[in-house]
Design a protein around this nucleic acid. Structure first.
Lengths: 269, 269
DNA sequence: GCATAACTGTGAAGGGTGTTCACAGGAGTT
DNA sequence: AACTCCTGTGAACACCCTTCACAGTTATGC
């Protein structure tokens, strides 16, 4: 018997394998949260295995790293999705603010993990496919971690744009280099986006990049402890930044309402 | 003979010691720039020593790390000072833009080193004095690396404010938590600054923090490769950010002139 | 059912790293 | 000259990653 159940279900061994696969990542993240370093050895020992055994699943320490990183990305996006879905679908402004706030909260709450994914930049080409073993979970969700982010916010951003058509800079207000590169990129995802946004595509995409940079920037600074701890803990700096982002995205009118979502200590519910 | 020269000059041994001390940091940074890891062992070997010998100078790998970090900070600030002094003292706007641009350029050009100092957060109290051996260079310049930065920009910022008195938010436009904390901080450096800026002290300091966060944020993102490489290499994103910062600091009128300093590919000299 | 193949784990071994310690030899002091 | 401090070494221990030959189990095929 190859399949335990009906047709093409995963064989017993495959399930087994997947289970330990997951356990590896789990244990690694557990160690991370516990303040320890993620060493192949530590993970193995924690699982009751010898280090070489892990090589049956993961192709070395770097690959394990990549694996954990990817899973963390998935988790963060999941947390953001939850926050987003607490607001109605026809209110993308609230959804964006909520997601961004959840992003920051996750990052601050899961410090070590966030630092890890941030410290390892978008894998400069060397281990792009090394960490994807044949039986790895969903082969379809093998996308780079960062793109999960941009996809997530991209969708929200698009809906916001559809609804509000906030003013974007025109082609000639932008630096020429950026415009030509994006428009002439042919089939790149960037070019697709530009087309999607229609006439002022470049301008809208530009705003998106700016907004994304600001959000990522502020969260990073806060998590890495490079800002005044008071400003971080109170969240004032974050809210101010979010306000700036929101303003550039035509949310200024709504701010009384939105800032509460961003954690403003108002007396509303 | 204890002193080689006249009175209280450093003894021969002390000079010797200081020399190898410096060499350690030098070699470490050399390795860093060469793409290698900074290992105690590697540094020792490179110097023709055995690893344990380094313990006569540096209290372990972490301390060496801190030492290198500190020196890097000093270098960055020096580079910024050079850029600043290329503009007249009575033009703080140009000086600020030049310094910020130099900061970014240094960070992008010295990648590995910048990443290192950024990855190690403001030493959470554990190794604050451990790495300062008795004979360490100038005991007076033992200030934390980050404070070198804020001091540097703080001075520029103050001159800019003196000159332009750009509009700052008033007390009641800020979140209450921030205001009270800064004003009631007594003898803290923050409180001093608030007083220095007079009536709207809190508002000005707030703008300073915002500007600093933005600059640090964008540079970090670029260096860590978390932004579109095209936007980074062209510098467009950086200039856009600097423009925003400048605008919030009353430099908008001057921008035609200032953006060239920030690397705008204009046809001016 | 039994041989064969595939998978999963172990132990040993080699190459890194940081760190401590006892000890030797030179530099400076008295 | 005797003594003290400084500087460096070698050995040893504790981690780490990684490869390899080998054993045990599990599934597959004849």
């Amino acid at each position: 018997m190859t399949t335990t159940s009906a047709d093409t279900g995963p064989t017993r061994r495959e399930r087994q394998r997947q289970a330990t696969y997951d356990e590896i990542v789990d244990v690694a993240r557990q160690l991370l949260r516990g303040g320890s370093e993620v060493s192949l050895r530590a993970v193995a020992t924690e699982m009751g295995l010898t280090p070489p055994a892990l090589y049956r699943y993961v192709d070395g320490a770097a690959a394990l790293n990549a694996l954990v990183t990817r899973q963390i990305f998935v988790d963060v996006v999941a947390a953001m999705a939850v926050a987003r879905d607490e607001h109605p679908q026809d209110d993308p402004a609230a959804q964006i603010v909520a997601a961004a706030t959840a992003f920051r909260a996750w990052a601050l709450g899961n410090h070590a993990e966030f630092r890890m994914v941030f410290a390892s930049p978008p894998t400069p080409g060397d281990d792009r496919h090394e960490h994807s073993f044949p039986l790895l979970a969903g082969a379809d969700e093998c996308a780079e971690g960062e793109s999960l982010f941009t996809d997530f916010f991209g969708e929200l951003f698009y809906r916001l744009w559809e609804q509000r058509h906030f003013p974007a800079p025109s082609r000639d207000q932008l630096e020429p280099g950026v415009v030509t590169r994006w428009e002439s990129a042919g089939e790149s995802p960037k070019a697709d986006l530009v087309r999607l946004f229609g006439d002022d595509g470049v301008g809208v995409l530009w705003l998106f990049e700016l907004a994304w940079a600001r959000l990522y920037g502020i969260v990073t600074l806060e998590v890495f402890g490079h800002m005044d701890p008071q400003l971080t803990s109170s969240g004032a700096l974050f809210r101010a930044t979010i306000l700036e982002i929101g303003t550039s995205l035509g949310m200024a009118d709504d701010w009384e309402r939105l800032r509460v979502i961003a954690g403003y200590p108002g007396d509303q519910a």
